[in-house]
Write a protein that binds this DNA or RNA. Structure first.
Length: 822
RNA sequence: GCCGAAGUGGCGGAACUGGCAGACGCUGCGGAUUCAAAAUCCGCUGUCCGUGAGGGCGUGUGGGUUCGAGUCCCACCUUCGGCACCA
């Protein structure tokens, strides 16, 4: 290269210049279709979405990764001619802002607004191709008005309801949590061990959709298996039977759920959960009453973790339950290894075939009776625990003895069903979604409580129910809204009598369960959305976000979409056709966090290397779905690449225009790179290998760029580099594109590889002897097999390894390899 | 315990359909340029033996299938993630 002073690459200036151009033009804004276009829907629309950020503090590298990934995909799709909807917003309600307000003073609204402003500035500084005209914040009345409207749609169909139930309570955050927000017995947000409480709370009836949430997974185009597995585990469907036992003496019915009705003859005791409502009545006035009550009290005081880890214990109630299949009366115990929330809160205990029941029976000396045995195997070993195997028959089971376990299951259930004593049924692990929270910074639940009319929905024309101004956000175990007496006291919309507003707010996951719908019609102030428009854009064609939402947001959003489809508000049943879950960014082996002091701020990296180099590096680090380790040295590699491209393009520009030749080594290398980049991004959804391909092409250009005979090829290859790097590094690509005399690369058609030029005319064929590499041949592509074998046999090196004479066998893969087997 | 994913140089990783293991980047080493340095450019960089040409070994471990295995099969080890008194 000439040693003249070439203009230095200054990322900050280049990036500011093009960001201003794109902002002024609204370059990435897409219009909604006219009704006619929406009806025709010609498939030119596509929706690329990343999970919206929670505006606590600033963006971190995880965000940079997530949104850059979506950005590359967006650019490529746009340049392929698609109308790409790529919006952005903020999940603005929630405890972070509220806790910050408590700790630092100020209003959560102001803190949130400040954070949103900082994040928006960072996003614009990264140069992401976002349609800013659809920006939304879930904490704005223009948005939460419709969250409330949707809540009322669920309420009027009994999909939102209030009841008293055992719930998980976080003593630190002073609020209840959904089951999905409890991880290993701890609060998902703050890590505090949760407590059990019995409270009246609002729930969404997500359990009504358990089967659909499972079955309709089939209709998804592409979701990671692990996410589907996690959802399947979470829903926890298991087939079994409901069997009715009766209390001896009183005849009261005690239904149980079991997945092993074939073991019914082996039930030797019966267990109630300590929370079971019948316990009081069963023991009242008996000598066991005090002991049982004492046990129940102790259980209530135990933490969930303690309850799970201690040895199994329980107390006898003094009463017996009658087994419907054999009329046998078995003792009823109370034990905390039985959970009130699952099944019926009562179990038939079969110690020979259930490990937990076995442990319990051993401890209390209860009979252990084997009722299934391996077919044709050993006899009956009284007292042992017999694990389930594939090929079993019933024993000691009256008329059912001798049947295989599956047949026995069916026969016993049929026998029970005929007599009204039981039926086949299905159990789920999934519980209803607890949506109410005893905190300030959330969406108010739009109902009032009236002494005469009960719970009454706030009429639509009175929405939104605005969050009142209060002075004290401190959580007190009840909603801080309750202190706003002027706001709480209202009139009943039904009878005009005095009424009180609901003071709980909604879980922020309610806000994020429909934001992707609102983006499609974000400025509609007459409805949550126009269905025709939403149906035009959705379902989301490519959704990108973290795996941590596998059973939270991703399950809730699916539930909302199905329920809204049943309400005929949407024309589809799954919100996200394709899902990609990206890995997390680590540094020094740990997740970046302020407390560990290992945070690299995107702002620092941008200031030092520019947004383009950061965008390239964050995607070059490794496979997008894997966790990755940040390296300061690594980003210098991509910064260097851009610097090389910069100097190359300026040099090419200085030489003036030259026509591209129709063929040549660099032309072919360019076409191969086009093919690789397109295939990786579009078919494989792989973003790091295209960058390696670009490195290779740039290296190749550098090797020959000073050859005057190759000027045309060099120019073509350089322009190809700019075109292909544009989705990754849009600013510098755009600048150099204009220096080369072109315009508007962000709108240029995505290049297509010419298959004729992708193929090479000469190939290297590997020669192996007994599978070991011994020589390489450079031959014309398509050289016939016999010729290849002849050439291979002519090789000195090959002959040296073919001990003597001819190979016994030859294997030829045309254009690739010859293997001579001696 | 159950379910799932992953183990490749000093490091991040590539190898898509069973066919050249280690592309590309980082690090390190050497050279050019420079008064000198930075930057830049060129080269080398799995490991062992060998002055060299060359050869042996090598994708968590052990076996298997195959002309040929990082890739397929069986068993095991390790790490990570999810679920877990769910009857």
């Amino acid at each position: 290269m000439e040693q003249t002073d070439t203009e230095k690459y200054e990322p900050a200036a280049v990036e500011a210049k093009w960001q201003a151009v794109w902002a002024a033009e609204g370059a990435f804004t897409v219009a909604n279709p006219t009704p006619a276009a929406a009806a025709a829907d010609e498939g030119r629309s596509t929706y690329v979405l990343e999970m919206l950020p929670y505006p606590s503090g600033e963006l971190h590298m995880g965000h940079v990764f997530n949104y850059t990934l979506g950005d590359v995909f967006t650019h490529v799709r746009r340049r392929q001619g698609f109308d790409v909807l790529r919006p952005m917003g903020y999940d603005a309600f929630g405890l972070n802002a509220e806790n910050a307000a408590i700790n630092e003073g100020g209003h959560p609204r102001e803190i949130t607004a400040r954070n949103i402003e900082a994040i928006r500035r960072q996003m614009q500084r990264m140069g992401w191709a976002i349609d800013w005209s659809r920006e939304l914040s879930t904490a704005e009345p223009e948005y939460y008005r419709w969250t409330q409207w949707l809540f009322l749609r669920f309420f009027e169909r009994d999909l939102a309801y209030r009841r008293e139930a055992p719930v998980k309570w976080c003593p630190k955050d002073q609020t209840v949590l959904a089951n999905e927000q409890v991880i290993d017995g701890r609060c998902e947000r703050c890590g505090t061990e949760v407590e059990a409480r019995s409270l009246t709370q609002w729930f969404f009836k997500i359990t009504d959709y358990a089967d659909q949430l499972l079955d309709e997974m089939e209709t998804l185009e592409s979701w990671p298996d692990r996410v589907l597995t996690m959802q399947r585990n979470w829903i926890g469907r298991s087939e079994g039977a409901r069997v009715t036992f009766t209390v001896e003496g009183s005849g009261e019915q005690l239904p149980v759920f079991t997945t092993r009705p074939d073991t019914l003859f082996g039930a030797t005791f019966f267990v109630l959960a300590p929370e079971h409502p019948l316990i009081g009545a069963l023991t009242a006035g008996s000598e066991h009453e005090a002991e049982v009550a004492d046990y129940v009290r102790h259980t209530a005081a135990r933490s969930a973790v303690e309850r799970e880890t201690k040895e199994k214990d329980g107390v006898f109630t003094g009463r017996h339950a009658v087994n419907p299949v054999n009329g046998e009366a078995i003792p009823i115990w109370v034990a905390d290894y039985v959970l009130m929330e699952y099944g019926t809160g009562a179990i038939m205990a079969v110690p020979a075939h259930d490990e937990r029941d076995h442990a319990f029976a051993e401890r209390y000396g209860i009979e252990i009776r084997q009722v299934v045995a391996p077919a044709g195997g050993e006899g009956v070993d009284s007292g042992a625990y017999v694990a389930h195997t594939d090929n079993e028959v019933l024993v000691n089971s009256g008329e059912f003895s001798g049947l295989s376990a599956p047949d026995g299951k069916r026969a016993i259930v049929d026998w029970l069903a005929e007599r009204g004593l039981g039926e086949a049924t299905i159990g789920y692990r999934l519980r209803d979604w607890l949506l109410s929270r005893q905190r300030y910074w959330g969406c108010p639940i739009p109902v009032v409580h009236c002494d005469d009319c009960g719970i009454v929905a706030v009429p639509e024309d009175q929405l939104p129910v605005l969050l009142p101004e209060i002075d004290d956000y401190l959580p007190k175990g009840r909603s801080p809204l309750a202190a706003a007496e002027d706001w709480v006291a209202t009139t009943c919309p039904a009878c005009d009598g005095p009424a009180r507003r609901e003071t709980d707010t909604m879980d922020t996951f309610v806000d994020s369960s429909w934001y992707f719908l609102r983006y499609a019609d974000a400025r509609n102030d007459e409805a949550a959305w126009n269905q025709q428009i939403v149906d035009y854009w959705l379902p989301v064609k490519q959704y990108i976000g973290g795996i941590e939402h596998a059973v939270l947001h991703l399950l809730y959003a699916r539930f909302f979409t199905k329920a809204l489809n049943d309400m005929e508000l949407l024309g589809f049943r799954e919100p996200f056709s394709r899902l990609f879950t990206q890995g997390m960014i680590y540094r020094n082996g740990a997740k970046m966090s302020k407390s560990k002091g290992n945070v690299v701020s995107p702002d620092e990296a941008v200031a030092k290397y520019g947004a383009d180099a950061l965008r390239l590096y964050i995607l070059y680090m490794g496979p997008a779905e894997q966790d990755k380790e940040w390296s300061d040295a690594g980003i210098e590699g991509t910064a260097r690449l851009l610097d090389r491209v910069w100097r190359l393009a300026l040099e090419v520009a200085a030489r003036g225009p030259v026509d591209a030749p129709s063929d040549g080594e660099l032309v072919r290398a360019s076409h191969r790179t086009i093919a690789r980049v397109s295939d990786d991004v579009l078919r494989r959804f792989q973003f790091h290998t295209p960058i390696a391909a670009l490195f290779e092409l740039v290296n190749e250009i550098y090797r020959v760029k000073d050859d005057p005979e190759r000027a045309g090829e060099v120019r073509f290859a350089t322009e190809t580099v700019l075109s292909l790097v544009q989705p990754y590094a849009p600013h510098v690509a755009e600048e150099l594109w204009s220096r080369l005399g072109h315009e508007r690369l962000w709108e240029a058609v995505w290049p297509e590889a010419d298959p004729a030029l992708v193929a090479t005319d000469t190939v290297e064929v590997v020669v192996q002897v007994n599978g070991k590499l011994r020589d390489r041949l450079r031959v014309a592509a398509g050289t016939p097999e016999e010729t290849l074998v002849e050439l291979a046999l002519a090789s000195e090196r090959v002959r040296a390894h073919l001990d003597d004479g001819e190979p016994r066998r030859t294997v030829v893969v045309p254009d690739r390899l010859v293997n001579l087997v001696g």
